[in-house]
Computed example of a mutant assay.
Amino acid sequence: MTEYEHSRTMPAAPEQVFDQAANVDQMSSWLPEALHLHAEDLPAVTVHEDRSDEDTAALLRARRDQMRLEWGTRDQGDYTGWLQVAGIDSGASEVTVHLSFFDDSHDPGEQVVRDALDSSLRRLEEQVRLRVDNAAG
């Protein structure tokens, strides 16, 4: 099993960050660029990966009371992950994403995963900033 974790501070309250992260209709704006989510009957979703041109049955659960998203493959159990939002001082939040690959053949490698996590959290922060700026203005 291989695990990865990456965090980023965002300039918004945890509720605002979580609401943006958990918005299924806008997840493609911050997920890794090669992944596309299609919500079926939540928690059931399908994830399309451009790299392999494959669709994977998955589950996605949003736990607002815990400010946590959880996901994983539905049939194989090869992969799981979570996103946790925590409030920090002065109205900011810290977002942590954790990924677990139970089958090494599904692990794209450390550098690829780290780059994808960094890019995804950066794009999520951009979406949060847009949301906060639009709400304030």
Rank of each mutant, 00 (worst) to 15 (best):
R64W: 03
A12C: 05
T80E: 06
R74H: 11
M1F: 04
V132E: 15
L117G: 10
G77M: 04
D53V: 00
Q84N: 01
E126T: 01
T56C: 00
D65Y: 03
L124R: 05
L69A: 12
A58V: 00
Y4N: 10
L35W: 11
A44S: 13
A62K: 06
E70P: 06
T80A: 03
L59G: 06
Q66L: 14
T9H: 09
S7Y: 06
E54N: 12
L31Y: 03
L99S: 06
V45M: 07
P108W: 05
D41L: 05
R129C: 14
D103M: 02
S29W: 03
Q76W: 03
D53N: 14
R64F: 05
Q20C: 13
A136C: 03
G77L: 06
D107L: 01
R123E: 05
D75G: 11
D65H: 13
Y4F: 15
D104E: 15
A34S: 14
D133H: 14
S90G: 04
L35E: 13
D65I: 08
S29C: 09
R61M: 06
V97Y: 07
V97A: 09
H98P: 02
T2E: 04
R123T: 07
A44Y: 14
W82C: 03
D103R: 04
I88W: 11
F102G: 07
D65C: 05
V97M: 09
V113L: 07
R114V: 06
Y79R: 12
A136G: 02
T9P: 01
H48K: 00
D19G: 08
A22D: 08
Y79T: 14
A58D: 11
A12F: 04
L121P: 12
P11D: 15
V128W: 11
Q111F: 02
D118H: 11
Q26A: 11
E15L: 01
W82T: 02
A22R: 10
A92F: 07
T2G: 00
F101A: 07
L124F: 12
R123G: 02
E15C: 00
A57N: 14
D78F: 11
G137C: 04
T2M: 05
E49A: 14
I88F: 09
P108F: 08
S29M: 07
L37F: 09
E49L: 05
M67D: 09
M67W: 13
D107F: 02
P32C: 11
E3C: 10
A22P: 12
S90M: 07
D104S: 15
D133Y: 08
L59K: 06
